[in-house]
Amino acid sequence: MKAAVMRAPKAPLSIEDVTISKPGPREVLVRLKAIGVCHSDVHFWDGAFPAELPVILGHESAGVVEQVGSMVSAVKPGDHVISILSPFCGTCEYCLTGHMSVCHTVNRELFQRDLTEAPRLSIGKEKVGQFLNLSSFAEQILVHENALCVVDKDMPMDRACLIGCGVITGVGSVFHSAQVEPGSTVAVLGCGGVGLAAINGAAIAGASRVIAVDLSDEKLQLAKRFGATDLVNPGKVNAIEAVKELTKGGVHYSFECVGLKQTAEQAYHMLRPRGVATIIGMIPPGVNIEIPGIELLVTEKRLQGAVMGSNRFRVDFPRLVELYKQGRLHLDDLISDRIGLDGITAAMQNLKDNKGTVARQVVVLD
């Protein structure tokens, strides 16, 4: 198969012929049709996070099942599926208490091949790293069955793939992690793909005021289409003061979708008493967030994280597909460009440069 291979940080990805193995007992081979280019891929491409090299990046994908292993029961050949980077085992404490999104962080070895087995991906005798157990910048993926969800075949693949990361991360954080209440106020810091999804989710949840915060006026205007009621550009005003003035004291919920110390702390300071700040962005390792300890006691404000929108993806994905069909989840507006595999390097550079017109760039395959 053809795949975009990363051999060094910040270097252009090379389109190479990669050998993909046959499915093991609980593995599924998927022919990909669409792949979203996510800012999380950029963090590994530019060296901010470590990656096993050579590696195939990519993790936001949708396609058609081609082959299944002997013990697979969740999918069958011909099914249309969306992948996710947070598979679940179904038997651990986290799965059994309804927190499936955390399972992969403590049981990650369950979803990989043993070191004594042949690798899933290789070029000649060289093993190729499988990024987040997916490696979606390729024509095919070979994954554990619990990393896939079957969806309706009439769902367009270029929209379906977005659900697998950016959309479930943003919308799921609103629905599950923070549990936004109807009539409440919300601030979303960062209007990239995840932030726009969080804004959309807050609107669907019935928030009375959804404040979009971003340095790009272009992205702020785009946020209106997803349900933002107010726009704040921190480059022109003090964002914390502006949000507090708009809400007469602060928001009930804030969502940090950038991945910076500064914006994480701003998200906390935008809260009213008993407000909840949810950190969604990938803050680099070694970076600490500082907040006044006494406020936690006196105001009962809360600061929390959310991984992949605290999802239950086999329940959530079909529901999100239905919301899209109803015209309430604005996936069409998320797509800023459609490209081929050879356009991925430029797409990641666009995200790194923070181009205001870029929400989600999607690789479309035949």
Rank of each mutant, 00 (worst) to 15 (best):
D17K: 07
V65Y: 08
A8K: 13
V65E: 10
I84F: 15
V18F: 01
S21Q: 11
C89K: 15
C38H: 11
V75A: 12
P50N: 06
D46E: 15
D46N: 15
Q67H: 11
K33I: 02
K10T: 06
L29F: 05
L13D: 04
A48V: 13
K10A: 06
I35N: 05
F88M: 15
I56V: 15
D41G: 00
G58D: 13
L32K: 10
K10N: 12
M71S: 14
E60P: 06
E66G: 12
A74H: 13
D46M: 10
D79R: 11
S21P: 01
D46Q: 11
P87H: 13
V42E: 03
V37C: 15
C38S: 08
G63E: 08
E52T: 14
V65S: 01
S70G: 07
A74P: 03
Q67G: 08
A11E: 13
S83K: 10
R31F: 03
A4F: 00
P23S: 07
A34K: 05
P87L: 10
V42S: 03
V30Q: 11
F44T: 02
V42I: 00
P9Q: 12
Q67S: 11
E27S: 09
F44M: 05
K76N: 13
S14D: 12
V18N: 00
G78S: 06
A8S: 10
V42L: 05
H39S: 05
P12A: 11
G47D: 05
P12E: 04
